[in-house]
Design a protein around this nucleic acid. Structure first.
Lengths: 99, 99, 99, 99
DNA sequence: ATTGCGGTTTTTGCCC
DNA sequence: GGGCAAAAACCGCAAT
């Protein structure tokens, strides 16, 4: 369809400028999406930073961060296993019409 | 059941022992560190989830996510470059006694 | 050291040609490493191919590959958990001087 | 068809147990598929391990692994390109009745 | 039959 | 060099 050929051109705006679609709104919307994403990525980076800080603090009080990482990882594996098992169970249930 | 998962993860213990630092507190502190880390990792994962959602929403309104990703990445690089430049400037200022 | 100035030039050979380090041997050795790697990567790709074939065969005999993948993944998580737990135990032992 | 309703029940086995389809064989077959897959994945992982070892060896003899990786990747792309070209040639031949 | 799409795995690049 | 996040590849599905 005609729109598809248009689609690939969306997403292009002059940097640091207001929306500039000739009379359109897609530029504004794109800008909004980008800003939301950037905001969330900042928050994510802040979390990563915080995690690093906690490890540093633990280390400064005499803990071995390598060990802590192992523990955290192991617990995460536990969690994943449990989730996988549940997912598999759901699959089974669905297969026998119990869903 | 929560308790059993507690027992096995108290950091430095002689194997399979419930006692935690006979009269000490390092077990508690380790536990606290681990919980803080896990909490932060959950939040980080939630942010990642939110970002995915925004991309999905953008896509559903007709944008090409690949392009958006490129833009976000470029802007991030711009930002980093600017920060680098500012840091360099600060270094210069310090070098000439302007700090 | 003298070698460091040379080092950055290692790794560059005319393709499909014999080693041509003027009077040297590093070209031959590099070539040998590359060939070993490529051979191993071929074998790895062949394994991946075989795995695909098994899934295809399972599917063609009426099994649901998604379920099989889930099971395989779950079993793999089990294995990893066990390995992680053992590694953690080793860390503990080392920490209390039992290694 | 009747068979399709049956199909979804395949893939059910108690973990770590022998086939237990009442009088059936699908459990055995499933188990066999899973074991074949796991065996192949182990071999694949072993190949990956070997590749890592070769890189380590190359590094220990003074090569820059990053460079080697680049070379390997380039050569792989070359190979793919050549195969593509050959495939295209075959297509041409077929088109003009030369196959 | 082809092609796009969602979700998963694999690879790549990065930072520590 | 090893772990972690981003990017790419890939598989199966679906719609046409």
């Amino acid at each position: 369809m005609a729109e598809s050929s248009v689609k690939k051109f969306q997403g292009f705006q002059k940097n640091d400028d207001v929306a500039n679609d000739a009379g359109g709104v897609s530029g504004k919307r794109l800008r909004s999406f980008i800003e939301r994403i950037e905001r969330l990525e900042e928050e994510k980076a802040a979390m990563a930073e915080d995690i690093k800080d906690v490890y540093a603090e633990a280390k400064s009080t005499g803990f071995d961060t390598k060990t802590i990482r192992k523990i955290v990882r192991l617990r995460k594996l536990d969690l994943e296993k449990r989730r996988e098992a549940e997912a598999l169970l759901e699959t089974y249930k669905a297969a026998i019409g119990m869903e």
